[in-house]
Design a binder for these strands. Structure first.
Length: 950
DNA sequence: CAGTGAGCGAGCTTCCGCTTGACTT
């Protein structure tokens, strides 16, 4: 069933398909769309979907085909040493679907690529062509409207594939890959593993960080004015309210300062000729005005007219769903997806506000029926796209069908009903008449007892014809703002009318820092800056939260300190890449490529390898920035955020943010909003007890014993009085004593932080225990990183139990040391499973459990089980396959460097100079390899420039 | 960000855009 109403082709005999016996296979992007279109095309057509893109560059190592694994650029999936040719693989989750498409094609005598008519859609069509390799005629079918007529017309009027548009898409894709996969590893090295950078997410994060910086730099200013309530009865009011509120606007002709007259630093803007009232001045004036008579000085009337809002596109839908329904961007899209799939609305990922002719008719019919002809403009309204880089592959988001169902008629409920209602109202309202009314500004004057002339102002708005506002009123992000349909009535007044002040009060205000972004307002900002696409807005919000760059506090998006560090690094070292105009410039290039006025390759080369700048100098390319220039990025510096006016530095460490003052460190709660980290707050953090549990006092030393939770788990330690603090009471004694290190010890496995006792702690702190002497050396028992062990000089042996640390005797110790060192406890563990013989080595394969999870080994080669592999389910074949892959991946990992080493001086390991040497060596090797690869001309994708005529 | 002695499988993380199920809990 097609999801649209009134569309079924009962009498559509004329459409009964194509001539000839065979079928045409039509491929669109979305399954829901395929269903609809199948209904319109009828017999002779088989309509299937690609479900979006079907292939892409490999996302991770496991997706790289074996033959490319050795390539130096395989990690990127783009042959940067050659012609920036991307390596495409079918997405793992699309393999079966591509197979299905191939099977369908086998029964077809024609292929119609009916993907969306935009950059991505054109690329999907090209990828389909490349992957399906059809031997039947191929045509490109495009349409902007999903109606029976439009679809049938589109099927008859096909065109060829636009390879220039494909090239523009590919350029975009390659750039995003290079940016993401080259810059992210810089963050892993300099800040923290698993972080990410990208053209879109990094700018989104930067926006949130910059807003927070503004908030942090903000100083509030206080200003006062007067609020009056005037009584108009003396003026002989025949109708309307008798009283109305007004605000003081000037004194003796000089305007009173309001919020917008102040700078973010809390000072008056220099160019403003205004008077700032403080509390005393305001109160004094109020007093001097009490009892005085006022009169109307002027009445200014202006016509008011408001046009309806454009129909929804993705961003505006997300904003309104957030304001009115409290949905997150993701939730809004999920609900919309369900409405779309069930045929209630048109496609929800769009940047277009255009309505099809049939939709305009449907909306107008509904206006006439529900509101009457008075509300219907003579001509349909047309909404031009406000979005600059709109690709217009879809319509606006609107009720589906050629007749709209009213919300009640849908039978929907819950969020689906409410979202549909929103979309329906907005669409209908978009075809209604303007709202018309009148706005009035009244100025009121009075003289104070001190001779000052005070002027008040009151505004009113009346709507004489509500027009579209009757159907739909847009929400506002600012809860204090007046909505469009809000009326404010004033009594009718004319110049010279006497008024009495019923109340007169001084009112204090303070300027406020710019509000944080919400999901919806950030998405709006991104759209205005042409960053991101409708299909990704909700995902962007998800990504920056998942990475820990941003967290939500209510609806506000708050940047983490981590985000500050990452943005700081990017701004200082990759300034161009986080420039807000970067995407806009990219779009210009892509448009030029699509028009055939620019070429992709030179542009990518320049981006990656750099080039000559306007002054004939060298413009640094991305490769150098992440390579040779990498050492210029000081991890400590980029992760440091000095607290202004103090010697405190906030640092972002691997384990979260902490404060550092001359080496004294204290953790900062992860969810502390950066703008709340004032000097005061920092002092509080330094002063606060760190959540330690005091167990008591060591009777021998008199020191307090505390249990703490640390980086390696719970432990106990003793508190050594800081001599500096002790100075106050005791005399400055001999300070010669070097800083004494407190004894520490991890808790045993049987203990917990909550229950550990002083006795336990003292026993732990008695470690290491001297067991006795052997061979003239002390034998000690202690707890270490790998558990309890015995130590004798430089020799050591693990103990079996923690208890043995306290009980082991010298005789037992001697026996333990007599044994050879265990070759690793792991290795001693029996294999989890035993398999057959590996066909290649002939050795028995076993599955073992290692530090990194289960792995299969033949004694020589070890290969981790992949996601999806289960220990019990592994067959001999699978195990052999894993081993073979492992062998192929790293040929002679130890031999290779060993061979190269003699060529270069085997320098000391620790110095940075030595490090550089090795890097250079490695680089030379890769360069050599890649040249060889380029020469042999490894075939990648088929010659795409030839595919698709044009 | 508490400090510590072996000998061992390291390998992966990450981008943006286009689309939905198929999984598991």
């Amino acid at each position: 069933m097609p999801p649209t109403k009134g569309s079924a082709g009962k009498n559509g005999s004329k459409d009964s398909g194509r001539q000839g016996a065979g079928n045409a296979l039509v491929i669109v992007e979305s399954p829901a769309k395929a269903k609809t279109i199948a209904g319109y095309l009828g017999r002779g057509y088989v309509v299937e979907s690609s479900i979006g893109h079907i292939r892409d560059m490999p996302a991770k190592a496991a997706e790289i085909p074996a033959k490319y694994k050795g390539q130096p650029w395989a990690r990127l999936g783009v042959d940067v040493d050659g012609n920036f040719e991307p390596l495409y693989v079918v997405n793992p989750d699309k393999k079966s679907h591509v197979k299905k498409l191939k099977e369908l094609m086998a029964d077809a005598d024609e292929l119609l690529l009916a993907t969306d008519e935009d950059r991505e859609g054109e690329a999907i069509a090209w990828h389909l062509l490349e992957e399906l390799k059809p031997r039947i005629p191929v045509k490109r079918m495009v349409f902007n409207e999903i109606t029976k007529d439009a679809i049938q017309r589109a099927a008859r009027n096909t065109r060829d594939l636009n390879t220039r548009l494909v090239s523009a898409q590919e350029t975009r894709r390659i750039l995003d890959r290079l940016y993401g996969y080259e810059v992210s590893p810089v963050l892993w090295k300099k800040v923290m593993p698993k972080l990410s950078a990208g053209r879109v997410q990094s700018v989104a994060t930067r926006l949130v960080v910059e807003r927070e910086r503004e908030r942090m730099a903000f100083t509030s200013a206080e200003y006062w004015d007067l609020k009056a309530v005037f009584d108009a009865t003396e003026a002989g009011v025949p109708e309307g309210p008798a009283t109305f509120p007004a605000t003081l606007v000037s004194v003796d002709g000089k305007r009173i300062a309001v919020g917008r007259d102040f700078t973010p630093q809390g000072t008056l803007r220099a160019d403003r000729d205004v008077r700032q009232l403080d509390e005393a001045a305001a109160r004094g004036l109020a007093e001097r005005l009490s009892g005085t008579g006022f009169s109307v000085r002027s009445v200014e009337r202006k016509p008011y007219r408001r046009s309806p809002y454009a129909p929804f596109r993705t961003t505006t839908l997300q904003q309104e769903a957030s304001r009115k329904l409290g949905l997150s961007a993701k939730q809004a899209m999920q609900v919309a997806q369900r409405l779309y799939e069930n045929g209630y609305i048109t496609y929800m990922r769009t940047d277009s506000t255009t309505l099809s002719d049939s939709a305009v008719n449907a909306a107008r019919n509904q206006v006439r029926r529900l509101y009457g002809g008075d509300y219907l403009p003579a001509k349909p309204r047309v909404y031009a796209s406000k979005v600059k880089n709109a690709q217009e592959a879809h319509e606006a988001i609107r009720p589906a069908g050629e007749e709209f169902r009213t919300p009640a008629e849908t039978g929907l409920s819950g969020p689906e009903f409410r979202l549909y209602e929103l979309i329906w109202k907005r669409t209908v309202a978009s075809q209604m008449k303007d709202a018309v009314g009148e706005s009035v500004t009244v100025r009121i004057e009075g003289a104070s007892s001190g001779g000052e002339v005070a002027e008040f102002s009151a505004t009113g708005k009346i709507i004489t014809f509500h027009g579209f506002l009757k159907a739909y009123v847009e929400g506002s992000d600012d809860p204090a703002a007046d909505l469009d349909d809000r009326e404010r009535r004033l009594p009718p007044m004319s110049e010279g009318d006497p008024l009495k002040a019923q109340a007169l009060e001084a009112e204090g205000h303070s300027t406020r820092p710019p509000a944080r972004y919400t999901e919806a307002s950030l998405v709006k900002e991104l759209e205005e800056r042409e960053i991101g696409r409708p299909s990704t807005y909700a995902a962007i919000i998800g990504t920056i939260q998942d990475r820990g760059y941003v967290f939500k506090k209510g609806t506000a998006l708050v940047p983490s300190f981590l985000a500050f560090a990452v943005v700081q690094l990017l701004e200082r070292h990759f300034g161009n890449l986080v420039d807000y105009a970067f995407t806009a410039r990219l779009e210009d290039v892509l448009d030029a490529i699509a028009r055939g006025e620019a070429e992709s390759l030179p542009w990518l080369r320049r981006f990656y390898f750099g080039g000559e700048d306007a002054q004939g100098g060298h413009e640094t390319g991305l490769k150098e920035l992440v390579g040779d220039h990498l050492s210029e990025i000081d991890p400590k510096e980029v992760s440091s955020l000095p607290l202004p006016g103090t010697d405190i530095v906030l640092r972002v460490g691997r384990y979260g943010p902490y404060l550092d003052r001359d080496g004294v460190r204290v953790n900062v709660p992860e969810d502390l909003a950066p703008d709340e980290l004032t000097e005061e707050k920092a002092e509080e953090l330094f002063a606060q007890p760190s959540g330690d549990r005091e167990l008591g006092v060591d009777p021998e030393t008199g020191r307090a014993i505390v249990a703490k939770s640390g980086r390696f788990g719970p432990y106990v330690t003793e508190v050594i009085e800081d001599p500096a603090e002790a100075e106050g009471e005791a005399k400055p004694k001999s300070r010669a004593k070097a800083k004494e290190k407190p004894r520490t010890s991890s808790l045993l496995k049987s203990m917990s932080l909550d229950t550990v006792t002083l006795e336990d702690a003292l026993r732990l702190l008695s470690l290491p225990r001297v067991v006795g002497q052997l061979d003239g050396e002390d034998v000690t028992a202690q707890n270490g990183r790998y558990g309890p062990y015995l130590k004798k000089g430089t020799d050591s042996r693990s103990l079996e139990t923690e208890e043995q640390m306290f009980t082991v005797t010298l005789e037992e110790a001697q026996a333990i040391f007599a044994q050879p060192k265990q070759r690793g406890r792991r290795a001693a563990a029996p294999p989890l499973r035993e398999l057959g013989k590996d066909p290649e080595s002939g050795a028995t394969m076993v599955i073992k459990d290692g530090r990194f999870g289960p792995y299969v080994t033949d004694g020589e080669v070890n290969a981790s089980l992949r996601k999806g592999d289960e220990v019990d389910g592994i067959t001999d074949e699978r195990a052999a396959e894993l081993l073979a892959e492992r062998r192929a991946k790293a040929p002679a990992k130890k031999k290779a460097p060993a061979k190269k080493a003699p060529a270069k001086k085997p320098a000391a390991k620790k110095t940075t100079a030595a490090k550089k040497t090795t890097t250079t060596t490695a680089k030379k090797t890769t360069t050599r390899k890649s040249t060889a690869a380029a020469k042999t001309g490894v075939p990648r994708t088929s010659a795409k420039k030839d595919s698709g005529a044009q």
